[in-house]
Every structure is written in structure tokens, then in C-alpha cells.
Amino acid sequence: MSYALLRPFLFNLDPEHAHDLTLKLLDKAHKAHALGFIYSQQSLPTQCMGIQFSNPVGLAAGLDKNGDYIDALAELGFGYLEIGTVTPKPQAGNDKPRLFRIKEAGAIINRMGFNNLGVEHLVNNVKKCKYQGVIGINIGKNAVTPVENAANDYIYCLERVYPYASYITINISSPNTKNLRDLQSGDALTELLDAIKTRHNQLATEYGFYVPMVLKVAPDLTTEQVDYIAQQLIDFDIDGLIATNTTLSRTGVEDLRYGDEAGGLSGRPVGHLSNQIIEQFAERLEGKLPIIGVGGIDSSDKAVRKIKAGAQMIQLYSGMIYKGPKLVQQCIEAIASHRDSQQR
């Protein structure tokens, strides 16, 4: 109810300003101990990547890029939070405006460009937060780093977040950093994973504990790319897959205001593409590693559709912007009912 009353006001603001304001208001409500009266944590234990999650509904990366609002977001009932994308050095991202709502389609286009305050800032926030649940940290490369040197940036971030992350996401699928998606194909992917995984194994030995590592991919992959990535995931013992990031497709928004803006499209229109990619990976991976489904989940039914496509867990972002935090609990309840029906 509270978000339903607040949303018209927020939607009259510039989208990026509304995003920042919403997080600040959420943080104030958290510090005033007001959120516990509205949202509750629902238990639906889920084992994935050797981690025990309180429930399978998480927050997708991008909403809290710097880990500034971990404790406040945790109160919304998520089973886990993914923060970032973070880069080695702080960067401003792309020029504004860079965030656009397409209300008629329940969609968002963004070309943020990994705007963040740098990995050191994020790590400091994780160290001082009170939240004891699962935190995934999503890492990327700086825009000024040539794509052929991308491994250096990923390894730099990997080394710094390793002691503080429940799992680490390698983001090679944002369309808003020039040439980043080139890393999803051929020798570029093999060389990147080889370098990162070598250091990952070394860190596990140095620290005496293993932090799972997952890869986040785009919804715009060809069949050949899906085949190749799936084999690389297996060959390099990657622990999981997040499918998918935003799309470059404009199907469903091409005739709407802002539909021709550059950037990645998220929300309702990406749901079908995301599900198709999940189904393809599920078929090729044959259960060898788990899939986390994200993209186009704006109802409990769509959450279950992701699970049916082959995802073990899901993440929310754009759907929550339109439907509010109650979507978290609705998705948990729907997945619980689906599990019960499968066990009968």
C-alpha cells in the first residue's frame, strides 16, 4: 500500500533522481525501524552453489551499485542481495539522461555505463553492514580499460571482494560498456575465464575457503554462442550462470516513447527472450551447474515461469520498480506452491 501511494510521485520525477530518492527514503525507513512492520522475511530454504539461501528470490545487480543500502534492502524480504556492478576505479558512467521508463510496456531502458564509486568503497560498505545473509558481488571492467586487458580489471576486483562475498558474478553482458559483450564469444571468453579462474583457485587456497563464481550473460546470444558458453562454463568449473542481462532488442517498445533510446532494455519485454536463453542453457548444461533467472519478472506467475524454464533461483529489479517490494513475497509464495505441486 505504501509503495502504491508513493509510486505516482516517484514516476513524475526524472527516473535516475527517483531511483536515488527511493533508496534514500528506504534507508530512512530502515533506520526508523519502520520496514519490519510492512515487509517480512518468508522462509523457503534453497540450496544452490553450496550456499544455503533463506529463499530463492534475490535482488539483481544494478539497483545498489555501491552497496550503500544493504541493510535497508535486506528488510524487503529477499533471500539474497547482489550488489554492483563495481569496477576497480570509480567512474561516472555515461552522460545523462541515461535512464528511461516505458510505462506502457512495464519496461526500462538504461545506458548507465557501470557508474560506481569503485571496488574499495563497495568493500568498505560490505564490511560495515549488519546483514548476515547472502551477498553476491557483481564485478566488471572500467570503461577506459581496453577489452583485451579486461582480465586485469576482473582479477583486481576479484582479489578485493573475495573475502567478503558469498558469491562473485563476472559481468560480461552489459551493453553499456563499449565492446564488453565481445568477451562472451570465442577465444576472448576462453582466455578471460582461464585467467580469472586461475586466480580464483589461488584465492581459495590462500584464504582456505571457496567462494562460488558465476557468469552473467546477455539475452541476445545466438545458438552457437549458447553452445560455446555452456561448454566453457563446464570446462572451467564455473559455479553458476545468471541469465540474463538487458537486451538490445526493441521488440514490444519500438513504437513507444523512449523506445528508440540507446541502452539495455529490461522489464516485461525481455521476459520471453530471457526464458528462451534459460531453456537453451538448461538443456545444454544438464544440471551440471545452476541457473539464476532474471529478466521480465513482474508477477508471481512469471517467477514460476522462470523456474519452469530451468532456473533454480530468480532475481528482481525492473518488475519491482513497477509493482513494488510486495512482489518479493508474492514470488516466494508462488515458487513455494510450485515446489509443493512438483512433490505431490
Rank of each mutant, 00 (worst) to 15 (best):
S2G: 05
A4T: 12
F11M: 15
E16H: 13
H19Q: 14
K24A: 15
K31S: 07
A34W: 08
Q42P: 00
Q42N: 10
S43I: 12
I51W: 10
S54E: 06
S54I: 09
G62S: 08
D64C: 08
G67C: 01
L73W: 06
L73K: 01
L76F: 14
G84Q: 05
T87V: 13
A92R: 05
P97Y: 03
L99Y: 08
A105K: 05
I109R: 06
L117S: 11
G118M: 04
H121A: 09
K127V: 12
C129T: 14
K130D: 12
G133V: 06
I135D: 01
Y156L: 11
E159L: 03
Y164D: 00
I170F: 09
P175K: 00
L180H: 03
G186A: 15
K197E: 07
T198D: 13
L203P: 03
A204N: 00
Y207T: 05
V214E: 06
V217P: 02
T223Q: 11
E224N: 13
D227Y: 09
Q232C: 10
Q232E: 10
I234R: 14
L248A: 02
V253R: 00
V253C: 01
Y258S: 07
Y258I: 08
G267K: 04
P269W: 09
V270M: 10
S274T: 09
E279I: 04
R284T: 12
P290R: 01
P290A: 02
P290I: 12
I292Q: 04
G295F: 06
S299R: 02
A309Q: 05
A309F: 05
P325T: 15
Q329L: 11
Q343P: 03
